[in-house]
């Protein structure tokens, strides 16, 4: 079961399809999987995505302002894609690139 792996492992796994994903889409998916439905849970998962990007494992390819309130109204939304370094770390974590 995917939910049994640490959150950042699962995040890398979700990005391992090498497609671009908006942060809010991933956050909603993760909230359901990990039963983290509070605002704290939402922000905590988004912060994990931010840390992965800060660590060079994800790269922001597109940004837009959240005008419809899909994540947080007025906030900046990011579309991320996994980097080569992210693939290497995903591979270290025994994900799909092994």
């Amino acid at each position: 079961m995917a939910g049994l792996r640490p959150i950042k492992f699962r995040l890398l796994e979700l990005f391992s399809d090498e497609k671009e994903h908006w942060n809010y889409e991933i956050v909603v998916k993760m909230q359901k999987e990990y039963n983290m439905n509070s605002n704290f849970g939402r922000d905590s998962i988004n912060f994990d995505i931010l840390e992965l990007a800060s660590g060079g494992m994800l790269k922001s390819v597109e940004s837009k302002i959240d005008e419809d309130g899909v994540y947080k109204k007025g906030f900046l939304l990011h579309k991320y894609v996994i980097t080569d370094f992210g693939k290497t770390r995903a591979s270290d974590a025994c994900l799909m690139y092994v």
Partner: peptide, 17 residues
Amino acid sequence: LGKLGEMKRTLKEFHPC
């Protein structure tokens, strides 16, 4: 913080993490 579950999951991943 409600992170004891995440701790258990991370502890299990000894080799990679």
